[in-house]
Design a binder for these strands. Sequence first.
RNA 1: GCCGAGGUAACAUAGCGGCUAUGUGGGGGCCUGCAGAGCCUCAAACGGGAGUUCAAAUCUCCCCCUCGGCCCCA
Length: 468
Amino acid sequence: MTLMVQNTLSGKLEEFVPVREDQVGMYVCGINTYDDSHMGHAKAAVTFDIIRRHVEKKGYNVKYVINFTDIEDHCIERAIKLDWPLDKLTDKYIAEYHKDMSALGVRKADVYPVASHHMGDIIDAIQKLIDKGMAYESGGDVYFRVAKVKNYGVLSKQKLEDMQAGARIDIDEKKENPMDFTLWKVKKENEPFWSSPWSEGRPGWHIECSVMSMKYLGETFDLHGGGTELVFPHHENEILQSEALSSKPFVKYWLHGGLMNVGSEKMSKSLNNFFTIKDVLKEFDPLVVRFFLLNTHYKKPIDFNDTALEEAKRSLSRLQNTLDNTRNALAKADDTITDGLVGIAEQAIKNFDKAMDNDFNSRDAIASMFDFAKEVNKYLESTSISKNSIEAILRSFDEFDDRLTIFRESSGGLDNELVDDLMQVLIDIRKDARASKNFELSDKIRDKLKELGITIEDTADGVKWKMS
RNA sequence: GCCGAGGUAACAUAGCGGCUAUGUGGGGGCCUGCAGAGCCUCAAACGGGAGUUCAAAUCUCCCCCUCGGCCCCA
């Protein structure tokens, strides 16, 4: 099965063929480190996490890089406002980012380069662009000379002339062309700064990504991701700078994820309509949040609201129930029987992979899991259960979980012996009550426990309980 | 204005030439003392209009609407 990816650069679904055999390079634009991450950041992190996992599953050795931008306007403003040194602020929010993503079950990247730690590389790159005639110094600023490139608009499919016509571009005396973008800018008063051959100042927004991605992944690498709002100008400019520096193609496949909306507006700091990951995780299980994010193809926007999360919770519990019921069936499974579920379980993994091969269609992969769950549920109602089959089903669920991380380990309680023993006492009392048809008492026990978040279920295999 | 992504049953999402999809919700049935879980089953769809085709939700054209980008932003 071949992996197909929707490449923003070509606008087409293309077969994924890595640049190099030994390694796939993947770079995703991370956050500005001045505040807690919100659900939009969570969407990006989770989607590229599962993309990375699937590429690895295809047998590639992935080197995954996510950057931190710690020198842009928001960071500086916030640091000045709090009267903190810049690195105190950015260290704090880098740590918070890692906490949030870890809570969300996002696997770590291999490298997290920080812009301010690469100032020497950035300055060298700018100097090289000036030497090549691709950039010029003007009043302490340095600008990229857009007129020198032929492929302006390769990514965003825009023409230079059209851009200038409708855009709100300040006429800047310092620029040769209004579309020229900043590589280095002179400091303003009170701002943190770095010394450079041109002035005391700091880099423009785009150059850090070019420098850091090429430093860790080489001048040409495979996958570059981010949200759609970054296509222009950020990613467009990254391409221009990088290719001007290396004279080689920069990135083979560009992947852009849809945004998180609230109502019909995108979630963003500037619109002040964001929900932080921390706040959402107070209300919802991280596994539910992941399921919610993955239940839509990553290119599409997702509307954030409680109703949708609640529905995700109910949907996911259907799969979780099947998994729990399968685990419970292991005890009564017969190891002398062999039957057909092994093949169905193996096919389920293939169906899952097939969906993921189609531009990482996690939504379709999830649908395939529901199909599988239905087969399993039917099987679990049959009179004789094969141990082979149960183990095969559990292997399939393990595989799904490796790829998506959406299942709970076990349905049980707190891993606390005292609680287990107390529950057993209650269950025994209730059992006696039911035996003597004292349903009033048995239902009271069940209802009261329910209020405490403990669910009692009478099943054919005995009484089961779980924390909800 | 210019570029990009969309409009699928009550809702949320897949599909993107022939097989009517997945979940939530709703109706009916089975199982159960009742719940829960599960099974069976029913209702319900492709923004509008032309065209291509034996066949279109899927292709082409036109129109309408939504969101995103063109200052910062995953």
